Simulated assay, not measured.
Amino acid sequence: MDLPLFFLMFLIIYLSAHFILFRNWASKLRSEAASCLISLAHGTPAVILAYFAISAKEKFSFADTNTVFQNTVLEYSIAYFLMDLCHYIVFNPSDVLFIGHHLATLFVFVTCRFLVFHGAYGILMLLILAEVTSFCQNVWTLSSALKGESEFARQVFDVLSPPFYAFYSVVRGFLGPLFVYKMVGFYVSGGADNVIPRWVWVSWICVVVAAISVSILWICNQWIELYRRRLVVGDKEKKIR
Rank of each mutant, 00 (worst) to 15 (best):
M1Y: 02
D2Y: 13
D2R: 15
L5T: 04
L5Y: 05
L5P: 10
F10W: 07
F10R: 12
L11G: 02
L11T: 06
I13E: 11
A17P: 15
F19D: 15
I20E: 14
I20Q: 07
L21V: 02
R23I: 13
R23N: 08
N24D: 08
S27P: 01
A34G: 10
S35G: 14
C36T: 04
I38R: 14
I38K: 08
S39A: 08
A41V: 07
A41E: 10
G43H: 08
V47E: 01
V47D: 03
Y51C: 01
F52L: 08
A53Y: 05
I54V: 01
S55G: 00
S55P: 06
A56R: 05
E58P: 09
E58H: 05
K59N: 12
D64H: 11
T65W: 07
N66P: 03
T67C: 14
T67V: 06
V68N: 13
F69G: 00
T72M: 13
V73N: 04
V73P: 10
L74T: 09
L74D: 09
E75T: 02
Y76S: 00
A79K: 00
Y80F: 08
M83V: 08
L85W: 08
L85R: 05
C86V: 02
H87D: 13
H87P: 13
I89K: 08
V90G: 03
F91K: 08
F91D: 13
N92Y: 15
D95Q: 15
L97G: 02
F98K: 13
G100C: 02
G100D: 10
H102W: 01
L103Y: 02
T105D: 00
F107T: 04
F107S: 10
V108L: 09
F114S: 13
F114V: 03
F117M: 10
F117R: 08
F117V: 00
G119M: 00
G119C: 05
G119E: 00
A120I: 06
A120S: 12
A120Y: 00
L127H: 00
I128K: 02
L129R: 10
T133G: 06
S134K: 02
W140P: 12
W140C: 10
W140M: 14
L142N: 14
E149R: 03
E151W: 14
F152S: 09
Q155S: 14
P163D: 13
F164Q: 03
Y165F: 15
A166N: 00
F167W: 07
V170Q: 06
V171P: 15
R172H: 15
G173K: 11
F174E: 04
L175Y: 09
K182Q: 15
K182E: 11
G185D: 15
F186A: 07
Y187R: 04
S189D: 07
G191F: 05
V195W: 04
V195S: 02
V195Y: 07
I196C: 03
I196H: 11
W199G: 10
W199E: 08
V200Q: 12
W201Y: 06
I205H: 02
I205V: 04
C206M: 13
C206H: 00
C206W: 04
V207M: 12
A211S: 11
S213H: 02
S215C: 07
I216K: 01
L217P: 10
I219M: 12
N221E: 15
Q222S: 14
W223F: 15
I224Q: 12
Y227I: 04
R228T: 01
V233A: 15
V233P: 09
V233C: 12
D235L: 12
K238H: 12
K239S: 10
I240H: 01
I240V: 05
